[in-house]
Design a protein around this nucleic acid. Sequence first.
RNA 1: GCGCCUGUAGCUCAGCAGGAAAGAGCAACUGACUUCUAAUCAGUGGGUCGGGGGUUCAAAUCCUCCCAGGCGCACCA
Length: 543
Amino acid sequence: MDIRQYINSAIQKLGAEVPFVELEVPRIARHGDLSTPVAMVLAKRLKKAPRVIAEELASILSAEAPFEKVEVAGPGFINFTFKRRFLYAELRALLNNPSRYLRKDLGQGQRVQVEFVSANPTGPLHLGHGRGAAVGAALANLLARAGYDVEREFYVNDAGRQVRLLGESIFARYKEILGVACPFPEEGYRGDYIKDLAADLLREVGERFKDSDFDLAGEYFIRFGVDRMLKLMEHDLRDFGVVFDRWQSEKALYDEGLVKKCLEELRKKGKLYEEGGALWFRATEFGDDKDRVVIKSDGSHTYFASDIAYHWYKIQRGFDELINIWGADHHGYVPRIKAVIRALGYPEERLGVLLVQIVTLLRGGRPVQMSKRSGEFVTLREVMEEVGADTTKFIFLTRSHDSHLEFDIDVAKKESSENPVFYVQYAYARINSIFRKAEEEGIQTGKEGDLNYLEEETEIGLIRKILFYPLMFEGAVRTREPHRITFYLQELAGLFHPYYNTHRVLGVEPAALTLARLSLCDAVKTVLKEGLSILGVTVPERM
RNA sequence: GCGCCUGUAGCUCAGCAGGAAAGAGCAACUGACUUCUAAUCAGUGGGUCGGGGGUUCAAAUCCUCCCAGGCGCACCA
């Protein structure tokens, strides 16, 4: 259904144009099936009264095939009512080829990289990472279905101080087990998982490092810790239903000389300078608050240095668009990375940063304090096991990414019987149940039912909702907001359940009505499945 | 002090490039299972959209100031 096309061509006939035709689904039935305020937008441009423009557009549009009625109302709204025949034909089109109907090729093969989670490999993933994972994965799925060529990447901070601290922490625990005195690093990681790692490492290498210095043994301990942490994170993410195409190592950027090469590139462009023994990037030239150090006076690189190289490398790899999903606590970092993009000679829009706001975990109505260093944090795995991956993801995707999220674990569990995710899944399971029963009764469940039998107002409402999926989809893609899918699915399920309660599909007369309703159910099921799979939520055959 | 995010029903949140009379879920109350799954449905109550200005034919939505909460402002990672 491409209604905009009709409207656009009508606007052209008036000798005007508009960048975007806004369409909305009116809340009130009297206002038709679909509505546009575009005449009011045009009023200024055409220097005519909005109602006059609306009337002109309406008279052109009322001749078009899909419309039963095209009315002008209020200050200049144009309200459309579809012909039933049109709705049936559209529904038929969807049934015949769901993915063509539901997935619009908006990306046209453009290459997009979504980088998300990218947690330091120094401890288990916590709930905040889970939110990033859910949002990133859903966004990647969404874009993939919109015709983008998507890559999902996890950036591994396996160089620098944090992983060194990880190594030192394991080292200290290792010695502790062997009864060798060794001070625990000041800012080391104190979680119990470090002790487990140390014990595992001991099992693997025995007492080989009992008397070693960290300078000597460090490399091994760091490597060991990072590998184990990466495996753990990958495993947790996999169980959460999130899989990456690529894991990019920061260390590799150094080892392969990319950091050096990139800094060289910037130097050539005159965007670096030395001062006070350090090497600086002219970030202020590109809108950042201050210039930033890339190589400290002691000769070591800042994190920023590898981040510059990383983004440069990503662009080199040929992506049309980069999307970084970051925790909101990194928002101060955005201007300097954008500055880098520009300094390297690329448009700033090449990079989009989606900031995912903080998750507060409530247990027993109280916020649970989280601090990685002290080892007090709630892991993604704990929550996943306690409330389930589907519920966890759904909760994350029922908020817009820039809204602070309160994750009340008691509510998430307690409500499990009335949880929104189950509400949607249940609709799916119920439809399956109908189809199972139909097969038992030997009813042919193909999609060929004569849709003209769908005459009830609730059925028409359901059809409309289904056919508006692409409209919602487009918006979700345009704004990069997967949570719109979540709300849509709840609304769709919210139309299906009442329908189910008041209308029987099987055993009604005439038999053709059953077939028509089966087709409708099939369409609902298809859309539910499509949406849930974008969110990464499972579709249960029965519940 | 500066910057970013948030402030909508008792609670958790939507509100789709400003648009027609503010929405959902939960919680509360009242009803519905000999029928394809009651993890469901029907109904009731509940809001000065943080506050003040401004722009507009039209503002929850844009601008501005203020208030409140969160998060950032390193030759840290």
